[in-house]
Write a protein that binds this DNA or RNA. Structure first.
Lengths: 111, 111
DNA sequence: GGCCCTCTTTACAGGTTCTTCACACCCCAT
DNA sequence: ATGGGGTGTGAAGAACCTGTAAAGAGGGCC
């Protein structure tokens, strides 16, 4: 069985993710995400604080084997970063770890 | 057990739904709906404010497993929208969430 | 039968999202 | 400082999703 998500509410800073209800709120306001964006954000938030490889993210979200040349994860990380930046400009959530993958952690940006 | 509907009156804007009595009123005037239309509208109104998948709506109203190719929910959403538009042109009730499903929420239309 | 009404299914158009590619830039080891 | 793989990202076409008209199927009634 996969990761338990029943009735789950994931919180991270001012973000509230309800995967079951297809809803993400940023400081109370609903965030407009596509299916893939929501899936990827959920996968990241479920692994909050850990560095996660593209392979792990890809197999979790896309449900098929990862090819090293596939850039889908990067593209969607970019889309998520942009939407999160629009909604919560004072925070950053998705951090790159060169050569390893991404880490989801809400951080206050440097002033 | 299913959703409790005993003696329930669902209200949403100028809409009043009495599932037990097979009656819907729009600003006091009875709305002429078929059985399926009433069932679907009731299912939506019982989940007011939430994004609901076609699958959930289909299994609730049709009482059988959902096939991805089945468009019945979409067709009936269209019929409901048309009748609600005729009765209450200033409001919109059923909102599409691309890739996820529908959300029932009474909203004043943009002027 | 013929008519009417409802429900189901299909087809197509139009719109949105997803995938892939290309290129620029970045990071690190040498 | 330089080289080479890693990462960010815009753009374009493919793939997928939704709205809706229309046709077919079934039942009830006269």
């Amino acid at each position: 069985m996969g990761v338990a998500t029943n009735g789950t509410i994931l919180r991270a800073g001012a973000l509230e993710i309800r995967p079951e209800e297809f809803v993400v709120r940023a400081a109370g306001r609903p965030l407009r995400l596509t299916v893939r964006e929501l899936q990827l954000l959920t996968a990241l938030a479920q692994r909050s604080g850990r560095i996660v490889s593209r392979e792990e993210l890809y197999t979790e979200v896309w449900g098929e084997p990862f090819r090293k040349s596939d850039r889908s994860v990067d593209v969607y990380v970019g889309k998520l970063r942009h939407k999160l930046e629009d909604a919560l400009p004072a925070s950053s959530f998705i951090h790159t770890h060169f050569g390893f993958g991404y880490r989801f952690t809400p951080e206050r940006k440097a002033p």
